[in-house]
Amino acid sequence: MLKGIVPPVITPLGDKKNLDIEGLERLIEHILSGGVHGLFILGTTGEGPSLSYKIRNEVIEQVCSQVDSKVPVLVGITDTSFTESVRLSKKAAEVGADAVVAAPPYYFSMNQAELIGYYESLADESPLPLFLYNMPSHTKIHFEPETVKNLAEHSNIIGFKDSSGDLLYFQNVVRLLQDNPEFSLFVGPEEMLMQTMLTGGHGGVNGGANMFPNLYVAMYEAVLEKNFDRMTSFQKKILQISSNLYTVGNSPAKYLQGVKCALSLMGICSDNLALPYNSFKEQEREKIRHALNRFNVEEVLT
């Protein structure tokens, strides 16, 4: 059973069509140095659905080779094509990944019965265990709690990542899965990490852990220890990161622009984004630079 902090790794791009391999290597080493419990590649933060299959395959190969089983690697296989999702799952299995993660296909909608049928078929054909991924803002499809409970009974479906941002919804899922304690329940929005863990969640897939993995690992450990003083301190810092780095500009991609810009300013990797999005111009970069200069993450970790 997977628990802990599993960062949704960004995909460093040298340009719009090519992977920044050296940047990816530095990024993986940086994240692993923070003591994370796994890596999630090619998710939303990793721009998976926007990348060519060539780049997706390169990312899977590079990360699995570099990690070399130090921590579990989860691979995003979300696609509008069922066949391509299965192909990506087979590629992930070939190079040593540990599990795959799939949001619903994001063009045609479906009802809950169709959603169940889709994931049962995907789990049947995937050579790796499968995580469900609830991302209704991007897919227009929402997993009802009963649907999650139903799918959790499949032997090859082992977990659920919720990025709805709805704490009450997450608590309902936790309640329905209380008789299935080996089923992993993760939350995406880092602002909710503390609350969801206190109510039965198992960890976070948090974008800020690309930059400050040790902070999110420390929050996870503080919740396990029920150290409310440390939790409160870490929560303030996490909210500071969210409110300063993810709110610059007016693009729907400003969260991702902010994360990539920060990593670029930290000297870790490039800040190029896949089309249709672009990296920040100097005015926005200066705002991110100013915010980074005011952060003192190490101060709250001591």
Rank of each mutant, 00 (worst) to 15 (best):
N227F: 06
V217I: 11
N210L: 04
V223I: 14
K226E: 15
R230S: 09
M219P: 09
M211E: 12
D229H: 14
P213A: 05
L224N: 12
N214H: 07
M231Q: 13
Q235H: 14
F212L: 05
M211V: 15
Y220R: 08
V223R: 00
F212D: 00
A218Y: 00
V223P: 03
F212R: 02
Y220H: 10
F234Q: 05
L224A: 09
A218D: 05
M231A: 12
L224K: 14
F212T: 01
F234A: 14
F228T: 13
E225G: 05
N206S: 14
S233I: 02
Y220V: 02
K236T: 14
V217A: 00
T232H: 12
N206V: 15
T232K: 08
R230E: 10
V223D: 07
E221P: 04
M219K: 03
D229S: 14
N227P: 02
V223M: 01
R230N: 13
E221I: 02
Q235R: 10
M219I: 04
Y220T: 01
N210V: 10
V217T: 05
Q235E: 12
E225P: 03
E221Y: 02
D229E: 15
M231W: 06
N227Y: 11
M219V: 03
N206Y: 11
A209C: 06
N227Q: 06
M211A: 15
F234I: 13
F212M: 07
K236C: 13
N206I: 14
A222D: 13
G208M: 04
S233G: 06
N227C: 07
N210T: 06
F212S: 00
K226L: 11
F228M: 13
K236N: 11
D229V: 15
G207L: 11
E225R: 06
F228I: 15
K236P: 04
K226T: 15
F228V: 12
V223A: 09
L215W: 08
G207F: 08
F234W: 05
N206T: 12
G208D: 12
L224H: 10
E221R: 06
T232D: 08
Y220N: 06
A218V: 01
F212E: 00
F228E: 11
M231L: 10
L215M: 13
A218L: 01
F228L: 13
F234T: 11
A218Q: 02
S233T: 09
M231Y: 08
Y216C: 02
A209P: 06
V217W: 01
N206A: 10
Y220A: 07
G207S: 10
L215S: 00
